[in-house]
Design a binder for these strands. Sequence first.
DNA 1: GGCTAAGCGAGACGGTACGTCAAGTCTTGCG
DNA 2: CGCAAGACTTGACGTACCGTCTCGCTTAGCC
Lengths: 195, 195, 195, 195
Amino acid sequence: MSDTPRRRGADRTEAIMRTTLELGQEIGYAKLSIEAVAARAGAGKHTIYRRWPSKGALLLDSLLSLNEAGLDYPDTGDIAADLRVQIHAAVDLLAGPPFGPLFRALIGEAQHEPQVAAALNERFIGPQADKTVARLRAARDQGQLSPQFDLELAMAILSGPLYFQLLITQEPLTHEYVDRILDALFTGIGPTHAS
Amino acid sequence: MSDTPRRRGADRTEAIMRTTLELGQEIGYAKLSIEAVAARAGAGKHTIYRRWPSKGALLLDSLLSLNEAGLDYPDTGDIAADLRVQIHAAVDLLAGPPFGPLFRALIGEAQHEPQVAAALNERFIGPQADKTVARLRAARDQGQLSPQFDLELAMAILSGPLYFQLLITQEPLTHEYVDRILDALFTGIGPTHAS
Amino acid sequence: MSDTPRRRGADRTEAIMRTTLELGQEIGYAKLSIEAVAARAGAGKHTIYRRWPSKGALLLDSLLSLNEAGLDYPDTGDIAADLRVQIHAAVDLLAGPPFGPLFRALIGEAQHEPQVAAALNERFIGPQADKTVARLRAARDQGQLSPQFDLELAMAILSGPLYFQLLITQEPLTHEYVDRILDALFTGIGPTHAS
Amino acid sequence: MSDTPRRRGADRTEAIMRTTLELGQEIGYAKLSIEAVAARAGAGKHTIYRRWPSKGALLLDSLLSLNEAGLDYPDTGDIAADLRVQIHAAVDLLAGPPFGPLFRALIGEAQHEPQVAAALNERFIGPQADKTVARLRAARDQGQLSPQFDLELAMAILSGPLYFQLLITQEPLTHEYVDRILDALFTGIGPTHAS
DNA sequence: GGCTAAGCGAGACGGTACGTCAAGTCTTGCG
DNA sequence: CGCAAGACTTGACGTACCGTCTCGCTTAGCC
């Protein structure tokens, strides 16, 4: 019933993550400081440090709070179409604002913070890989994929080119690009054996 | 007449880059400071700022000075074998010390410094891609590759999985892993058409 | 039935003051924090703030609890001897541990906390001055002191040199020093009139 | 020729001390922070820490810069009159703004910073004591003082009561008070021997 | 003897300042 | 005149306490 209630726990956590995303979008992750997040969120610095051990950890949580549901896989029975739909959705998330730029920054951070790298894999990459593998396994059992196809490599082969475009060449990551990659992968590099 | 003569120009440039690599290996790129490089190299900070606009630019130059020759492509006539050899060499460079850790850090830096990203593409990724495409084109003309194979995508498809392993999952990048990826790519994901 | 029963009122007050003295001795008053006292005493910070408005007030109470009886004046009929005895006792208290260092710190605190200064005068300096003046008045009435002797100044003249030694020069405050001061004061600075 | 020249060394030192005195007067020493001095002086914190190891050391230098000449002793041949004049001057300095409040704070600081105490004695108390003793010695040689008078105690006996009033009772330190003290000291406490 | 009100420990919270570090700019004086 | 040396302002770091606050638990005191 107070006019300016001193809120606790989850309230503060949420406000800090929201502010992190706001500031991150406005000034870019590189210039983002915990000091500035605290000031903008009306929080004490200690309140942030109590929750997150590093800027990377804060960003990771903030970012994942944007995608709590995760990316779900459709299963229409046509693996090629389903993969296309799912990867289109992934690309829309990864490449677009606000997720995209901050996600790239987070991967940058993961290069010198092993804990961020581990958490990123465990909480984002891993679950997505699991779903991908599960869907591909079903397709393989139905004969839509080559029986020899190595499911462990699926994530690297399917996602690698996207991350290459996102992180290295930094050219636009479009649906059309995804489609070309998928076509090439389904066909294979070598000449078709049957002729 | 001094015992440590005040050297100029290229001497200073080289000494600073060498020190950057040394310090980068010792304390990690994240903790690398221009201040520390200057102190260790016996150089004034101004001498560094006169040559490089940012830490990323300094690291890029320092790193590329390790691989001035670039990675050359063999051409034995067998594209599958040549690719394998070449990518093994690339992986040996990228994943091993001292290049690996600093290279990963550089890609991290490229996520928030567009100039570093541009220079990285222009001076390292691009040339490698050109060589790869040239070798693949020759192979395609000889019928060793599918005529439909999209050469523009070659670098993303071949390198993407490696960078995914290097940057995202951060698991060891071995020859055996490369071989499995290449096998899968040559075969293609879909079931073989001949049946 | 608890092994560490949650005690109330005076128990807590006493425990907090005892802890204050302990910690003050161990780490020095300057580094003493209410946070640390609370933690060591197993008390909540609020329990301390409920009783004392400031660190100075807490220290004052803690310190005076060491000397609840006060310093009593002997009256043997010989004022010079009685003064000597009494000031020796005062010096033993003021200069020795644990009282001395904390007492000095308290006077330091009194320089920027008027409430501490007032309380210090009211509860420690004042009563001692009253006793001193009363004893001196008796001596004056008995002709042992000059009739012109200004009793109001007695405390300043007798104690001033001691506090000077304690607070300013910070050299040892010994019985021998006190004796020399008393001798000089009884004699006076000027040349003796009788000659 | 620049409009806002970046000044060095002594300029910065002087500006910081001046700001320290200003801020100290405005908000009081207890609330004085190095952060605030730096901000007000337009100086970096490091520039302050480079020069002074602590707040006390900064205040000491700042304060002594107000009284670089020191308090000089007159010598008219009449020691009682000269002492009176000199102590009046000392009291005017010690008790009045801006010196007084900051000087009290400095003595407070000296209670838990031995280095401040040492510097205070060496640079302020000591020189004043030396002058006092020299003047008193001359007077003693001329027969104006008791030959037995212990010159080593002079400073404590003469100044002690003033510091007692300044630091402990914190009542006004007036010329009239000084005069009463001096009268009492010259006379001595005991009854006059001539009777 | 059960109920309520207060005291209490614990510690989260918004703040302020600490003392350190490095960034990037500048000045000085050597060679 | 390029350089090393390093002083300078700026800004962020991560830590320590401040004094206020909320949270449940315990304990007294009053019905």
